[in-house]
Amino acid sequence: MADDFAPSALDNDDDAYTVRPYTVTGGRVAGQADGLALEALVTTRTEGKPQKGLTPEKKKILQLAAEDFMSVAELSAHCKLPLGVVRVLVTDLSDNEYLTIHATAPVSLAVEDRSGITRSLLESVLDGIAAL
């Protein structure tokens, strides 16, 4: 197990950011899960696929997302699991058809990419906030 973790310089933030939620995620590490937005909404699929054999963490996610649309960030907060872990679990549950990830806008890792932010969207947001 120790080998799964690279020793990292305690005083270097970049190196220290080695999220290896190995046990909870069953050895799967973040990859495509990195692209999952914190605000992406998920819902549990309603086909009633048997949850036998799923980890308690996964069952908890499915339970939460069965009640309402749940963002990745909310799942992380309610499950008290780090974001990186929840991203991996959600991606895995989606791959295995337990839940649906509702894509918000085209996924782009570039912070500068603002193509999803359209005028009509901003107008709706502005009207909505003004009416609060």
Partner: peptide, 11 residues
């Protein structure tokens, strides 16, 4: 709500 990202530091 409060959420966190974990940094695991191993020595």
């Amino acid at each position: 709500l409060n959420t966190e990202a974990a940094m695991t530091e191993h020595s």
